[in-house]
Amino acid sequence: METFSFEADKLLPNNPELPAVLYTGAFQENPANAEQIFNDNGWRNSWVNGVFSYHHYHSNAHEVLGVMSGSASLQLGGDAGRRVEVSAGDVLVLPAGTAHKRLTSTQDFRIAGAYPGGADYNTRRATPDDFTAALSEIGKVPLPDSDPVYGETGPLLEVWGINP
C-alpha cells in the first residue's frame, strides 16, 4: 500500500486532509470482481469504463477505482502531482477533491469506480469557478464506513483516521 498527498494549486483543490491510497495487486487473482467487491463493501453507485484524459475531480464524494483489465498511466494531483502506473488488480482510493486524469492506457484498459454508501458524485474540472465551489464542498464529505477492498477492518480506515 502506498499513500500520496497533494497540495492545492490555483485550479485543483486536491484534499488537504486525506491522502490517496494505492493498493497494488489487491485484486490480482481476479480483477474482474472489483466492482462486485466494492459493492459488497458498501461502495456503490458503481460503473465500469475508463478515466477521462483531462484533470477532473469529485468535490462531493470519495472515489475508488479498480483496474479490471489492461494498464494505464494516471496523473494524480494535477500537473505538479504524481504519475502512477496501474494495471489489472490495482485499486486506487481518491479522497474528495483529488485531481486525476489518464495519460496513456492500453486498448483493453477498463476500470470500475464506486463511492461510499452509493453517494452521488459531481465531476469538476480545472476551472476557477469549479475550484471556488469545491473548496466548501470537500470538507463536508463524510468519511466512509468501510474500506472498499477489505471491508470494515481495512487499512484505509486507519490511514484516514477512521479507526486509529
Results as ranks from 00 to 15, higher is better:
122 N>D: 15
67 V>D: 00
50 G>F: 01
123 T>P: 04
44 R>K: 14
157 L>E: 06
102 R>C: 03
130 D>I: 01
144 P>W: 01
31 P>M: 06
29 E>T: 14
133 A>H: 10
12 L>P: 04
145 D>F: 03
152 E>A: 15
44 R>Q: 12
97 G>E: 03
91 V>Q: 02
104 T>N: 11
90 D>Y: 00
112 A>Y: 00
61 A>I: 14
123 T>H: 11
73 S>R: 13
70 G>F: 05
141 V>G: 02
150 Y>G: 08
151 G>Y: 07
131 F>D: 04
14 N>I: 03
46 S>F: 02
160 W>C: 05
128 P>S: 11
24 T>P: 05
2 E>I: 03
11 L>Y: 14
76 L>Y: 03
116 P>R: 12
94 L>Q: 01
120 D>A: 14
55 H>R: 13
51 V>K: 02
111 I>T: 02
19 P>K: 12
142 P>R: 10
103 L>Q: 08
37 I>C: 05
75 Q>E: 14
36 Q>V: 07
12 L>T: 02
44 R>H: 10
37 I>G: 05
96 A>N: 11
61 A>N: 11
97 G>I: 02
78 G>A: 05
21 V>I: 15
90 D>A: 02
36 Q>R: 15
23 Y>K: 06
94 L>G: 01
18 L>D: 06
126 A>T: 02
21 V>Q: 07
157 L>I: 10
54 Y>A: 15
131 F>T: 05
99 A>Q: 05
70 G>Y: 06
28 Q>I: 13
25 G>T: 09
119 A>G: 13
38 F>T: 00
53 S>Q: 15
61 A>R: 07
91 V>S: 03
115 Y>I: 03
1 M>G: 06
60 N>R: 12
90 D>P: 00
110 R>S: 07
136 S>W: 11
154 G>H: 02
119 A>S: 15
163 N>K: 15
110 R>T: 10
137 E>K: 13
3 T>D: 04
36 Q>S: 13
52 F>N: 12
159 V>N: 09
162 I>A: 08
78 G>D: 03
112 A>H: 00
99 A>M: 07
61 A>T: 15
67 V>C: 07
65 L>V: 04
91 V>Y: 01
160 W>H: 09
20 A>D: 08
37 I>S: 05
39 N>T: 10
93 V>M: 14
77 G>N: 02
148 P>M: 01
30 N>A: 13
51 V>Y: 01
142 P>T: 03
